[in-house]
Design a protein around this nucleic acid. Sequence first.
RNA 1: GCCGAGGUGGCGAAAUUGGCAGACGCGCCAGACUUAGGAUCUGGUUCCGAAAGGAGUAGGGGUUCAAGUCCCCUCCUCGGCACCA
Length: 921
Amino acid sequence: MSTDRRRPFPFDQFEPRWQRVWDERQTFHTPNPGEPGFDATRPKFYVLDMFPYPSGAGLHVGHPEGYTATDIIGRYKKMRGFNVLHPMGWDAFGLPAEQYAIKTGQHPRATTEANVANFKSQLQRIGFGYDWQREVNTTDPAYFKWTQWIFVQLYNSHFDTEKNCARPVSELIEKRKAEFLNESEDKRRAFVDSHRLAYVSDAPVNWCPELGTVLANEEVIDGKSEVGGHPVERRPMRQWMLRITAYAQRLIDELDGLDWPESIKIHQRNWIGRSEGAEVKFKIADCPPGMDETITVFTTRPDTLYGATYMVLAPEHVLVEELVTEEQATAVEEYREKATRKSDLERAELTKDKTGVFTGAFAINPVSGERIPIWIADYVLTGYGTGAIMAVPAHDERDWEFARKFALPIREVVSPEPRLALGGGGVCDAEPLECFHGEGYAIHSGPLDGLPTAAAKAEIIRRLEAEGLGKKTINFKLRDWLFSRQRYWGEPFPVVWENGKHRALDESELPVVPPALTDFKPTGTPEPPLSKAKDWVRYQPVHHERGDDVSKAFPLPSLSEIEGVEPCHSTATRELNTMPQWAGSCWYYLRYMDNKNADRFVGAEAERYWTTGTTSHQSPVTSHKVPHGGVDLYVGGTEHAVLHLLYARFWHKVLFDLGHVSTPEPFQRLVNQGLILGEDGQKMSKSRGNVVNPDDVIKEYGADALRLYEMFMGPLEATKPWSMSGVEGVFRFLARVWRLVMEENQAGEWQRSAAVQDVPDWEQSNKPLAKVVHATIKKVGEDIEDLSFNTAIAQMMVCTNALTAENPRPRTAMQLLLQILNPFAPHLTEELWSVVNPNAGLLADLAWPAYDPELLIEDEIELPVQVNGKLREKIVVKKDAAQSDIEAIALACPRVLEHTTGKTVRKIVVVPGRLVNIVAS
RNA sequence: GCCGAGGUGGCGAAAUUGGCAGACGCGCCAGACUUAGGAUCUGGUUCCGAAAGGAGUAGGGGUUCAAGUCCCCUCCUCGGCACCA
């Protein structure tokens, strides 16, 4: 392949030039309310990309897919007269940077800076109209100061279940003081600490020895770490947790007003996993004196209580030790030992084969009075419900399997058909042949007999509540968010410990900057790497003035600085954990609105304007059923369907409750771009060698071709394979557009084509052309609004093909095409615009053209004629022809006659403007 | 197993929501211009058939004047979840 082959158009020259022009003129900078150049009369549009993690590998062609879509929207909305907020930034804390740093011996700050620079230059080469003045970086102290500040807000808040929202803990303290006048300081403190939205817990966590950190449940897949696939084991550790479960119901309910794909909403609802049921208390039989004599279970099928023939506790259940009989002690101890050692992977692998051990103890079924054995088994999870179940083997697959394996009794209490009249019944005679877990009618259930499942549930709950044996309950699968990591490259907690008690730092002490460690390897123990910074660990108060520039507060390691630290007399030590990578991405969309604010995480006025569109103060949005406001369009991959989107919603709601933001939800509309596969139809990966680098595409075909192909491949949301010949297709299209305007002279130089001429009144003199051009303006505008970029491009190809055939080519027709193609191919169109319409300013600053509907109206239309649903003929009729005339013309067609002679015409269907169908037999 | 998204030419895909199936692009075929063509332009291209015609949107059934689109059943692909009582 010859590299000096002449390019069909000189994109390599004009693309960088226009990128420079946009940058110099700050074409895509949008001022905030109150800043010079801000125009309050324009509506706002906030279009957001999920910001990238700047990996060392650089961009692949999957990144620019969503980015191009938002860029087209942003440029289009700007042309439509909106104040467009379209920012970009870096999610730069995280494990890969740290691991790369460990491997290469470089400081993660250095590698992160290099990666960011690389990503940024790659994005700039694609010609995206980002407002780079609003760039954020989660590792910038001026940014994570506010991540830490938000943590402090969480720390200083509790969830008020009556008001159903977060409130300052100070309110809780006052209430507690009033309620328990003589409570000791320590007791009250313990109470308050156990109600904070950020709290410390000793619960078992997912510890990954290889990564040297704990992971959230969501980061563990099949018992292995999501990052790297290393084994994960459970062990109890002291960790920071965020009380997201308090928001479970609101996180479900407030999805309703959001303009999100239904599948993502379902995903989130399933993840939160609300289930309605009942808690039921079971008395322990022959209860030894002095111990709590009931076990509480959670069940969604309280109607099957009469069929509960045994109980199962999670191996970790606190009552196991007290319950177990002497004969069973060894077996139980062995089983519990094994269960705790077992990784989640092993538990998952053994899904089919149930295991368990009898404790030797019995409980009393509260309704039948029957003695039922109590077992332990690891199919009962300690973290869900009460960690104990009543087993109804006839109506639950798991209990069925378990009962069959250990020969426990199976009693049928639900029938798919109504078998017994209300109040009838009797004792179960034979064991059922199979497990039935659907809804039906109660049998062998005393007073419930004959009731359909829903009524039986209500009735049994009523009875249990009356006797104090149980109550209606709602349970969620969602667990609290494990928020600490044993890593170096993350936000330090703004927390110090003194005498075993934690305390959040004052805002004036933020940011807490990580120590300039040279050795940040995992310690190999649960002790975080920050423990190596002996001087840093000893807390010394540092105070920043409000509005201080803290962005320079995070130097690269310098030994002299570390040694120069004053000896500290305080006994307080810093929290050594760091925050997970999700922290920074939970609120970055807020920071973009006002990224330089040194006094607040986001200025109130800027936040109000960019989320609600108003600059005047008004009462916050309260209804959950109306649009919530916030980001107008958020585009990103489905991989963040639950984690990021759920965490960000949670933080946003807390900030909303505390009055820091104006809307209850952050992202009004969400769109997922589809995955781009390699040319082989496989997922792109280094190991498959099918990764396409956008830089290579730009080098060969230019940025506009890359952008256009990304959008032409297919619907934004679809998964679709890359194709280099497809790139060539759109590249040829761009070359055709180029040659509409340009031609080569004898010297081989490009100059304006002689065919481009001013043709006065061309729209009247050339109706067919005018129709195509105006139909294209209409369709492209509509398609952009619908995010149907592929069909918009197809229409512009049609328009281009029509223009190619014209000579002369009316200059204003060309200009219209350039205007609507501009958001897609901004460089080429600016270049041609400067040729066709010099001194007219930047195309990007122009308004979107209007189409003339008059020109789209046809005098005559073509109608297909079907006989018995089969196309036979096409007729041309006047637009407003009478139905009877159309029928007559249709019936008279020779091809129609061929198929109707000898038959009776039963019916003629005329759909005005659409078709004619003649029914004959 | 459960949840979700899909299945349309040789390929990527369109189809005003029930109204001409295959727009647009790739590829392929033919022609034009050319010393040349992996450039450009013009035309053709769902399948079977010489044609008339027939068949056709994963497969089967149904509703309808009319179904890619609506309803029922079956199969396949991809993504996610997976003992949540």
